[in-house]
Amino acid sequence: MIIRIDFKSETPIYLQLSNQIIENIANGNLTPGEEVPSIRRLAADLGINMHTVNKAYSLLKQKGLLTMHNSRGIVATGSHIAEDEKKMSSVKKALRPIIAESICYGFTNIQLKEIIDELYKDIKGGKVDE
């Protein structure tokens, strides 16, 4: 799992961390069932506060992407079932303000689709699903 924190970014560190863990699940660097580092270990490795890592992990647990196991620790649970209405609703809710902002900047529907296709391909390591 690759995590890089930009301490100069305006994006809060816990969001950077949670977004990068999501991307690691999406691109296969972190597979469902795979253990993620403990809160203490990840905080030490990244040089950040344990509460920050805990906040990121809590957010990912709420989204159903991480699960706590007594015997195995914290594991990724990312599912690839897009038909789940709750997940679909969550993604739409997150995309809505981004799309609205893009429209304000003058992006067309075609341009937005091209951006999404480009980012999808980049995250998946050049692989495109149909």
Rank of each mutant, 00 (worst) to 15 (best):
I74W: 03
D122K: 15
C104K: 13
K86S: 10
K113M: 05
L119Q: 12
N70D: 07
N109W: 00
I98N: 04
I123A: 06
D117I: 05
V91D: 02
N109M: 05
Y120A: 13
Y105N: 10
R96Q: 10
L66I: 10
N70Q: 07
D117C: 11
T77I: 06
Q111H: 13
T77W: 04
S79H: 09
E85P: 14
G73M: 00
K87S: 07
M68G: 06
E83G: 14
I98G: 02
S102M: 07
K86E: 09
A100N: 15
F107S: 02
G78K: 00
I110Y: 02
R96Y: 05
K121V: 06
E85S: 12
I81Q: 15
T77L: 05
G78S: 07
I110Q: 08
D84L: 07
N109P: 06
D84I: 06
M88P: 01
T67I: 09
D84M: 05
T108I: 00
K93I: 01
K113F: 01
T67Y: 09
K93Y: 03
G106V: 01
L112P: 01
Y120C: 11
E83A: 11
E83T: 13
I116Y: 09
M88T: 05
N109V: 00
I103Q: 09
P97E: 03
E101S: 10
P97Y: 03
S79F: 03
E101Q: 11
D117K: 14
I123L: 10
N70S: 09
Y105H: 12
A94I: 00
Y120G: 10
K121R: 15
Y105S: 07
L95M: 07
R72V: 01
S79G: 14
K92A: 06
A82M: 13
A76Q: 02
K86G: 06
I116F: 10
I115M: 13
D122M: 14
L119A: 12
D117L: 12
S89C: 02
E118T: 15
I98P: 00
F107W: 04
K87V: 04
K121H: 08
K124C: 15
I99C: 00
G78L: 03
D84E: 10
G78H: 03
T108S: 08
K87N: 08
I74T: 15
D84F: 03
P97M: 03
S89I: 01
I110E: 08
I115C: 09
H69Q: 10
F107Y: 09
G106S: 04
I115V: 11
I74E: 07
S89T: 04
N70A: 07
K124G: 12
H80M: 15
K113V: 00
I74G: 04
H80T: 12
D117S: 14
H69T: 11
S89Q: 04
E118Y: 15
H80Q: 14
G125A: 11
K113S: 04
L66T: 04
I81D: 15
G106K: 02
K86T: 11
A82K: 15
Y105I: 02
Y105L: 10
E114M: 08
V91Y: 02
